[in-house]
Design a protein around this nucleic acid. Sequence first.
DNA 1: TTTAGCACTCCGTTCGCCTGAGTGCTAATC
DNA 2: GATTAGCACTCAGGCGAACGGAGTGCTAAA
Lengths: 344, 344
Amino acid sequence: MDLNPRKLRILRAIVDEYILSGAPVGSKVLSQNPSFKLSSATIRNEMADLEDLGYLEQPHTSAGRIPSDKAYRLYVNNMMQRSNLTEDEIKVMSAYCQSKVKGLDAVMRETASVLSRITHYTALVMMPESSTNRLRHLQLVPLAEGYALVVVVTDAGVARDSVIRVPVEMGADELDRISRIISQRYYNCRMIEVGDRMMKELGGELQDRGTFLTDLVETMETAPGANAHRIALSGANNMLDFPAYSDIDRARQLLAAVEKKDSMYQMLKNAGPFEISFRIGSELGEDIFSDCSLVTATYRIGNMPVGTMGVIGPTRMPYGKVVSVLDYMRKSLGSILTNLLEED
Amino acid sequence: MDLNPRKLRILRAIVDEYILSGAPVGSKVLSQNPSFKLSSATIRNEMADLEDLGYLEQPHTSAGRIPSDKAYRLYVNNMMQRSNLTEDEIKVMSAYCQSKVKGLDAVMRETASVLSRITHYTALVMMPESSTNRLRHLQLVPLAEGYALVVVVTDAGVARDSVIRVPVEMGADELDRISRIISQRYYNCRMIEVGDRMMKELGGELQDRGTFLTDLVETMETAPGANAHRIALSGANNMLDFPAYSDIDRARQLLAAVEKKDSMYQMLKNAGPFEISFRIGSELGEDIFSDCSLVTATYRIGNMPVGTMGVIGPTRMPYGKVVSVLDYMRKSLGSILTNLLEED
DNA sequence: TTTAGCACTCCGTTCGCCTGAGTGCTAATC
DNA sequence: GATTAGCACTCAGGCGAACGGAGTGCTAAA
């Protein structure tokens, strides 16, 4: 980068100030900051340079400057420092950690809720999923004639159910027998392998059962992590707080986008396996989110990254604080899950 | 009621017109309607009367009239007629009916989604729950040492899971054994009775297991219908479409209210067991919904009402159409569930 | 290289004006 | 007695002019 230290300092001050105030930053306020011993005119010159270099933008001629996505990128990479959490925040988060364990679903929802309450943004938490998920139990429960409920339990600690057709002549006893066989034979096998093995090893025995085996395997595989593609979402309404979406029309589009959990899932997924990662404005690749940033954190069970949580807010969010919160939460969630689910 | 037939006709015309246009209705447009052979002056007099009686309101002196909640109530009780569904709507809804069966969760989500897409309002669908739900299967799956996942399957066709502590010395075998005993002994028992019976009948056998039995029973009971208090929600962003919420601040409050699924659940629940029921504006008892109406429909499994679905929109929604859609959907959902889950 | 000074730009707000829709009332008509 | 035509009055919403303020770029001096 061709930014001299003074330019860097000024850019950083602008980003900090803009995040704080939300209003375009003028040369005057910066020159009043005692840490700069420069006149506003000098700063104006530097700001003009920074604009030429693509770090700043001007909403209109007689306004101050606002940081560009490029500036935010530089900021989060090199300049940002984590901010300390307030006592209140820590209180909320540690209360959450100690709350009594209820099923995984509830933990995820609660995590999202805490995240959105503390940051005042929209929080997303992906269900844990991992290609190393292992089968704990499979149960086929007969429903109406010709139908059965498939319940799959993995070591990620949650049951996932769906309905499949079964041959009419298969009674409760046989379904139960099959359940027991599969549960025992494939206990602790990785989910990604179970399907293949079942096709090979049980194909003969069940060959006169029509598509039953195929259907069953497909059902099990479409839920590879037993939780595929499921996310908890909280605080969508916080989106309306920030002025970029005071335009009702945009607000609608945004909410509609957020409601599509599939695409939200993809956004989380795209963040990759980094502990903390940022996607800023245009980097998100969705027009409607061009004024938003997504900060994500990966949580682990034991040492294995199994899921991602994230916060979507305006590009001008206080990254330092958001990072601190996410880091705290990803560790908390990790240890909750690890204690609960680790291989025993 | 002290409304003569002419007043009724006028009131009805006003409601119809206002629902259609969204703008306060003046005497002139009504007098132009050829079905009234009255001058605008006459109609004005009648409108003044209707206002005195509380059926109409005037946003300001020189505006037309809009219907009050009282008028809408009269309208839905006595005047409204169901409107026919368009071909497109029927196409969407019947496609939904024939879609391949996936777990109950998916069916509920899809129902809500179809409802909100067709009505362009916010749709709520309560999971089926019934005090007559019967146990199909119980499975305790060991997790980390001292923890187990409780999976309960009822005839409502869905598994519900949560985690409980178990005595450390109970191994996988014993958990499995207990699962089998409970599943067999209480197969097809009503969920509301299972807890009591377990306490009585298994108390002795498990008395040296600490709070295990109590915990287990509690877990099973907090999910009486296996789906207690769960709802699917779709189209919340549609709320932003109507002008009453073009004020961003109100929009936020509204969305926050909608996000609280508990209170949404209560609103559905409060609707009672009627096939179709209306709650208009102030009748909803929540300030933030004072410009909204909730139309609900109860769906059945077999002959038993097990859940409610509803649509929230502005008080000036086209009730006739919404009712037709809800009626269609409640029957569709009912038959989907009945086919799938009926006692065999 | 930095700074002071100045003319200029442009946004957002405020204010007054005007228009159009709709009313209530009165007096005439059926 | 019910209905209607006519008229004066009211008020919300839209439009444009005027204005103040914040901030800039440029020039010339330090």
